[in-house]
Nucleic acid binder design. Sequence first.
DNA 1: CTCTAAGCGAGACGGTACGTCAAGTCTTACA
DNA 2: TGTAAGACTTGACGTACCGTCTCGCTTAGAG
Lengths: 201, 201, 201, 201
Amino acid sequence: MERNDAEPAKRGRGRPPSAEVRRRVLETAAAVLLENGISEVTFDKVARRAGVSRMTLYKWFRSPASLALAAFEDTYADSLRPESSGDLWADLRAHLREFAANLSEPRTAPMVAGLLGSAQHDPKLAEEISATYTRPRREGAVALLRAGRERGQLPAAVDAEALVDQLWGACYARLLLPEGKLDEAFADALVDNLRALADPG
Amino acid sequence: MERNDAEPAKRGRGRPPSAEVRRRVLETAAAVLLENGISEVTFDKVARRAGVSRMTLYKWFRSPASLALAAFEDTYADSLRPESSGDLWADLRAHLREFAANLSEPRTAPMVAGLLGSAQHDPKLAEEISATYTRPRREGAVALLRAGRERGQLPAAVDAEALVDQLWGACYARLLLPEGKLDEAFADALVDNLRALADPG
Amino acid sequence: MERNDAEPAKRGRGRPPSAEVRRRVLETAAAVLLENGISEVTFDKVARRAGVSRMTLYKWFRSPASLALAAFEDTYADSLRPESSGDLWADLRAHLREFAANLSEPRTAPMVAGLLGSAQHDPKLAEEISATYTRPRREGAVALLRAGRERGQLPAAVDAEALVDQLWGACYARLLLPEGKLDEAFADALVDNLRALADPG
Amino acid sequence: MERNDAEPAKRGRGRPPSAEVRRRVLETAAAVLLENGISEVTFDKVARRAGVSRMTLYKWFRSPASLALAAFEDTYADSLRPESSGDLWADLRAHLREFAANLSEPRTAPMVAGLLGSAQHDPKLAEEISATYTRPRREGAVALLRAGRERGQLPAAVDAEALVDQLWGACYARLLLPEGKLDEAFADALVDNLRALADPG
DNA sequence: CTCTAAGCGAGACGGTACGTCAAGTCTTACA
DNA sequence: TGTAAGACTTGACGTACCGTCTCGCTTAGAG
């Protein structure tokens, strides 16, 4: 068993955190997040509705947005499953469709947008989002493109990092900017545009 | 308080709005926006620093973010000049470079990011940003791409609306997401990726 | 009409304070002071019970104890009436009896004690109490004794300032220290002790 | 002040309290008391600074003020030595001078004042102070006066209990009320006033 | 020489209050 | 009528303590 050697194994370990309390907090925060959006996820409201002390929230979460992120991950976040079939274009189409569907789902879309919006004022939140949500997805996407390029399905000169932003990033842009709708048709269009360029016939 | 001697006090029917006051407000808001970021642009602070009544701000601006937007436009917004040379790829490269340079400029980048961030919680602000900032630029971009397509520089099947998001939108994604840096090299990579696809040689 | 020239006569004078609010605050604070003692006079409680915003209290009162003092003065403080008959000993007896009765009155005694107790941790409160309560009374007492001394009813060598503490101060000591009861008999004993010394027969 | 004096300490079972811990606690509390005054003597601060668990303090002391009192007694309290020479006036002068000097000493004065101040909101603390500090001194003083009266140095009619408050109590009044300074000159004045009354020549 | 109860450290949790900031609304007076 | 000035409410943030309640380690003396 790997004991965490960094932890100095204090003598008294103190009262253990209550799973019950943690559950109530995250559930309540998730509910508020769903009903009223991230800007209503405040320590005050969640503490009151969850029947929990505000102090407890201050101990666990840096900020209300951070709490919202935890609730989002706990309740709504999709589990990413980066499968690859070998056919790059089919993979791209499938993944982007699912990604766009996810981001445009009426319940979760405002949550993700709200979280990313809050992250613009809160670098630590940005880092948290990046670590648990954004970065893993991006790495999967980069890997997918690189694999395709190595299989010769993309020109060698293609910059995979930039291309990720031209596919997944474009979806984020549609989510976060007021112009343009995000839907599966858009996801298809992203892939089709690339194919049209590669094969103008 | 300087009296505005230029204004002839039109027919004594009520006091005319003071241009002086408006100027001071916008200047102060711009300064706060620059120094402390959008989240510090509050009616309270600006009113105090500008030596202006808070009531006045409530009359003119829907919200602090809206004030920040006005100050941003008044002081920092770039004047868009949609020139086109006829060479699509050269135009794209030039425009995107300038766009990326603008968005990644250390002074304005956090402002735009902050404004777009706030817009995620404030639909009216989103609409304001769209009307005065985002939409015009997008329309210029779409027109540019459509013109290129009509000149045969892009396959007919290309979806110009989606392609805009794959170029300019990708830049926004880099601005707003924690991963990846936004710079001129990235702008070049966006264009080069498309050219590499179109001409794998 | 004497205008306060120190005040720069601002142009707009702003909304005037609401007498209604002030009244409700002081009444509520006085009630809490009476029912639960000074340590329960908190901004929180008073604001809630008075149906008033806590912010308002923070504007008007430096501290909860200061609010309690204001409420005490507004509602319970005795109006001092320094009458003198010419007979020093009769005056002393009368004044001290009334003073002791006042301080030992079951309703007000804990208030005064509590206020003076709080003042031990709060120099500003001490000064406030001194200015509005303690000092005027002491000055009246000193004047009374000096007048008596000048009339030859006290030896010329007597230190009036110290003697005040040996009469009124002794009452405060009984109020504030756990030993000894404060009542009219004690007030009499204070005067009688001096007379017994002056006239051992 | 230890809480469970009633408990007969069942035949020495269990781990005995650690003298080391007790020492650290009292030292730390005394230091805080000296540096920051009684209102800063909180279980939280003392526990942290002493490197001791807050629980331990809750076991030993009823309240922070009670802890402060214990620390005060342990470190700063004067040992009372009720000596009597036979000359009442000389004894009074000496004792009151020492008493006043003690109470007006810059380090301890605010402690005593603070403790007595806190006692106004805390009857149990008042009783503790009375038992260990105030009452013994008063009893010594009463005995001194009674002895003098029996020796004929005071009129038989003098009320010794009241007279104590006219001497020692007057000092407490000067300590606790904002008016008047407490010093040795004041102590002398108290005695001199009585002598002047007794012997107007 | 073990068992066991108490002392103790560490920490979770609830609660109350403080003090601050800002949004919004309303009111008065002035220019 | 546009502004200044300010009163008031609401709601949230963040901090500081208090007081209670587990855990689990430590330790001295009773058996």
